[in-house]
Design a protein around this nucleic acid. Structure first.
Length: 514
RNA sequence: GCCGCUAUCGUCUAGGGGUCAGGACACGUGGUUCUCAGCCACGGGACCGGGGUUCGAAUCCCCGUAGCGGUACCA
């Protein structure tokens, strides 16, 4: 079995194409087959080397490795269509010699006019075959004289083309609806359907798994396989990926390319897992499945027939699963760039910083959808402002009153004579002492503590947050984090701010302004 | 217009002549004696319409309808 993924380097790797690549990859890996990568860059206008580079990078990031391709080579290369022009041209010549194709001298303007005319009369807009009857010898002369000419395929009349689609079963087309397709453009480049057939034929591709948008290309390609005397591969067409409004997924729906999802902090295994389950079902209720197992269980017959809507909420849910399973060291390394961008570090994190980050990984790994949300979740580690907290009326009302104030004073006093709260037990013990001194419990106890230590009314659970704060205080400067204020200092600062403002919750400076 | 593909909760789907039509995401309620998130439990929520075939149809057939794709010297 030989399968391929054949992207055009005309932009970023789209999530729909990733699913196609994935299905091909799963098929190859689950059957001991070969997965090859071919770059379809015959559109010189839109193809770029940068696009090719990023597509390869994205595939590697995803973990979809290929056995043959433009970078690694292989026995049937080259793997870039722009480097195979001679192969297409010689095949086109042979088809002309055999009378299966002919030169077409029609101008784009003529064709356009004819198409519009046909459409106006509600007729299928097929090529008129004006050039089909030109004497081959004369056509050859005109070409030799430098007249621009495309090569067209002579589509047989009145035939039915049936193929058995690996996902949908038998599909039949009538050749009457197929015009004489262009095999080679007048600039010498092959047209898509021709290049694909020549390549898949020459590369020994046995299974072509692609998007549903290629389904009507299949009979055209089958005709070319026949003319070229290549044994045709088997085809399988996978339904489209749609946006929430049921139109083709595109930029206006939000992120659509792999690099965007990586940027947002989705894990490659989560993306692949989600994409696989979008239209493929293993038959049981499993939602989370590692790549290797997917390869083992993947069957094209278990792929759905209808288009599916891409749901980022569910992708986020899958991502959370993998985030929770990921080892802390990996999470730290992945999260570090996001913290740097948020301004929480001074340069690259060293081993000390990464070690610290791994040690507090549970603080964010269980409560975040994706990596880009990590800085927000850790904000209270790096930012602390009693003044800002007291400026919020709701917070102020809760802690400026008797009970809250009492808790905070006791907290500050206890912290003053306590070692750093580097673990949950130390923190709990201290909270207990405050509880005994103040008689407060539950929300009345913990909420003032939270506000005094974080300056906010919500956030990660204190059992995790407090040790994270105090473990971050005396980090070696090599850690490169911006300095983290400890609990002791925070409580003291909060008490000071509190004392500087009246207990009734009014802005102490209001009178001055009036 | 013509050709083709498709049709089960809002979304992803399982099932497939007789089922309480199952699961997941999302949503709602409750719990997790600090909050948000998470997690756990419970709950509401679907077979596009019409005709057949059949004792029986969501399931098979036909016809509609709707969505998507194609109809290029783009890929």
């Amino acid at each position: 079995m030989r399968v391929r993924f054949a992207p055009s380097p005309t932009g970023h790797l789209h999530i729909g194409n990733v699913r196609t690549a994935l299905f091909n990859w799963l098929l190859a890996r689950g059957n001991g087959g070969v997965f090859l990568l071919r770059i379809e860059d015959t559109d010189a206008e839109r193809s770029t080397a940068e696009s090719e580079t990023t597509i390869l990078l994205d595939l590697r990031w995803l973990g979809l490795d290929w056995d043959e391709g433009p970078d690694v080579g292989g026995p049937v290369g080259p793997y870039r269509q722009s480097e195979r022009l001679g192969k297409y041209q010689s095949r086109a010549r042979v088809l002309i010699e055999q009378g299966r194709a002919y030169y077409c001298f029609c101008t784009p303007e003529q064709l356009e006019a004819e198409r519009n005319e046909a459409l106006a009369k509600s007729l299928p807009p097929k090529y008129s075959r004006r050039c089909a009857s030109i004497d081959p010898a004369e056509a050859k002369k005109r070409v030799a004289a430098g007249e621009p000419a495309a090569v067209r395929f002579r589509t047989p009349d009145n035939r039915e083309i049936t193929f058995t689609d690996l996902v949908r079963g038998d599909i039949t087309f009538h050749t009457d609806v197929i015009g004489d397709q262009v095999l080679q453009r007048s600039d010498g480049y092959p047209a898509y359907n021709f290049a694909v057939v020549v390549d898949d034929g020459l590369m020994g591709v046995t299974h072509v798994i692609r998007g549903e948008d290629h389904i009507s290309n299949t009979p055209r390609q089958l005709l070319i396989y026949e003319a070229l005397a290549f044994p045709p591969p088997r085809f399988g067409h996978v339904a489209m990926v749609l946006g929430p409004d049921h139109t083709r997924l595109s930029k206006r729906h939000g992120a659509t390319s792999v690099d965007e999802f990586r940027e947002k902090g989705y894990l490659p295994e989560a993306l692949l897992n989600y994409l696989a389950l979008l239209s493929w079902s293993p038959g049981d209720d499993r939602e989370i499945m590692p790549l290797a197992e997917m390869a083992q269980r993947f069957r094209l017959s278990d792929v759905g027939h209808s288009a599916s809507v891409f749901d980022e909420e569910k992708l986020a849910w899958v991502n959370r699963h993998y985030l929770k399973e990921a080892p802390p060291g990996r999470l730290a390394a992945l999260a570090a760039p996001y913290l740097e961008r948020a301004g929480y570090t001074r340069g690259l994190l060293g081993p000390v910083g990464l070690g610290y980050l791994s040690s507090i990984a549970p603080l964010f790994s269980t409560s975040v959808d994706r990596l880009a949300q990590v800085p927000g979740r850790l904000r209270q580690l790096f930012e602390f402002s009693p003044a800002a907290a007291l400026a919020q009326p709701e917070l102020r009302a809760e802690i400026a009153g008797g009970g809250g104030r009492q808790v905070i004073s006791a907290l500050a006093a206890e912290l003053d004579k306590s070692p750093r709260l580097v673990d949950r037990e130390t923190f709990r013990a201290l909270a207990n002492r405050v509880k005994q001194q103040t008689g407060q419990k539950g929300r009345g106890l913990f909420h003032p503590i939270r506000v005094a230590l974080t300056g906010a009314g919500d956030g990660p659970e204190l059992d995790l947050l407090v040790p994270a704060i105090d473990r971050g205080v005396d980090l070696d400067p090599a850690a490169s984090f911006i300095p983290i204020a400890g609990c002791r200092e925070r409580a003291a600062a909060f008490v000071a701010a509190l004392n500087a403002s009246p207990p009734d919750g009014r802005d102490p400076h209001a009178d001055l302004r009036n």
